[in-house]
Amino acid sequence: MVRYQNGDERAFNVLMSRYQGRVWGYIYRHCYNRDRAAELFQDSFYKLIRAAASFDPNRRFSTWLFTIVRNTLIDSYKKRRLKTLSMSMPLEPGDTKRTFGDTLADPESADGEKTARQKQLEGRLQQALEKLNPDQREVFVLRQFEGLPFADIADLQGCPENTAKTRMRYALEALRRELEDFA
C-alpha cells in the first residue's frame, strides 16, 4: 500500500490479487447477493483508493481494508435498511419456484465443479449464519473464511480480543448445532 501511495500503480494489482477473494467472501457472506456484493465490493475499493493517501503504514493493511469494507456494508445497510436475505425469499418477485436459498449454494454454480453436498452445505450455512448475532457472524466469517487473526477482528469491531474469541466460540457452537448432520 505504501508503494501505491508513492505512485506505484502495479502495487495495487498485488493488493487486489491478495485481498480480492477475502473481501469478496466477506461481503458476499453478508448479503448473499452477487449483484449487491459486486456493488459493495466496488464501493469498498473505490473508497480505499480515495483514502489511500491517508493510510497509516504503522497500521495493518488488512485491518484498515476490512474496516473500510465493513463501514461500506454498514452504510449500505443504513441506506437501504436491508437485512440479510432470507433463504425463503423468492429470487424474483412473484417467482414461487426459485428462492435465494437455491442460488446461494454456489455463486458460481455454472462451473459444475462443486458437489451437490457442498451446495447444500453452503445453503445451510447461510441459513445458520442468518440466525447468528451479526457480530458473531462477522467474527466467524472473518476468521473462518477470510483468515483474519482475532486481534485484527477485535480491532475492527472495536472490542477486546477475548470478546471476539467469545463471539467466535458462540458462533461455532450455534453453527455446529445447525449443521450437525453435515459435520
Partner: peptide
C-alpha cells in the same frame, strides 16, 4: 465442522469487477 467449512470453495469476485477497480486505482 471446521474441516467441513474449510472445504467450501472460496468464491472470487467477477473478473470484470476486478478490472474495473484496478482501472480506477
Amino acid at each position: 465442522l471446521k474441516i467441513r467449512l474449510d472445504g467450501l470453495p472460496s468464491s472470487e469476485p467477477p473478473p470484470e469487477l476486478v478490472e474495473r477497480v484496478l482501472a480506477e486505482a
